[in-house]
């Protein structure tokens, strides 16, 4: 069974992105083991000269190392990913590189109708940067608009069409994870190169 880390891309107490991931964890329990990870307690990234990465960040990095893939659910603030998620990704590319060649699925929930379309594009760009080098599942977007109305009292997705889409994409992601294992010819180069963009040498 695949093991996934699911990053809640928000620090809000009543985040619908957290709700969406909690739903996936339950709903896909027979297919995969999903471990929700919170990023809200990481300190503000300040590129410390002593290279000290906070323990909270290395703990997340270890979980990602051991997982087959990562699911990130992002809100959208100001047409982009929220600072708190950007902050986590800064720590997770500072002298540690858990995302290199790691399969990533991006989803997002928003109160409005657009469902984080621009934040997801932004997040793709971030994860594609040389410091992170994740393997993002291409041509797949799960946008959950009007997220406050999207769940019933048990926290289940109400809209069956949305559920069908999410199920399809999640199953595809599992296939993508397996395919990515075959996309291994550049792994070594990637790992080497990421050392060269090590912030320490900057």
């Amino acid at each position: 069974m695949h093991k996934f880390v699911a990053i809640v891309g928000s620090n809000s107490d009543d985040s619908t992105n957290r709700k969406l991931l909690q739903f996936m964890k339950r709903h896909f329990a027979a297919q995969a083991e999903i471990d929700l990870v919170e990023i809200k307690d990481l300190p503000m990234f300040n590129k410390p000269e002593n290279r000290q990465v906070p323990a909270a960040a290395t703990a997340i990095a270890e979980k990602i190392d051991q997982a087959d893939g990562v699911i990130i659910s992002t809100p959208e603030y100001d047409h982009s990913a929220p600072a708190v998620l950007m902050n986590a990704l800064e720590w997770l590319s500072f002298h540690i590189h858990p995302f290199v060649d790691k399969p990533v699925m991006i989803i997002g929930a928003s109160y409005g109708s657009l469902g984080t379309s621009r934040a997801q594009a932004h997040l793709r760009q971030i994860l594609d940067s040389p410091e992170l080098r994740a393997r993002i599942m291409p041509s797949s977007e799960f946008l959950l608009g009007h997220s406050l109305q999207a769940f019933d009292d048990e926290g289940n997705l109400v809209d069956q069409q949305k559920l069908a889409k999410l199920t399809g994409l999640f199953t595809d992601f599992q296939t993508f994870v397996d395919i990515t294992k075959e996309l291994n010819h550049a792994n070594e180069v990637n790992r080497k190169e990421v050392q060269n963009v090590n912030w320490d040498k900057l």
Partner: peptide, 18 residues
């Protein structure tokens, strides 16, 4: 530029100011 984007610290400021 961090990770092809602006820093979280700057983004956080803009979020408070919006």
């Amino acid at each position: 530029e961090h990770n092809h984007t602006i820093t979280a610290s700057l983004k956080s400021v803009i979020e408070w100011l919006s």
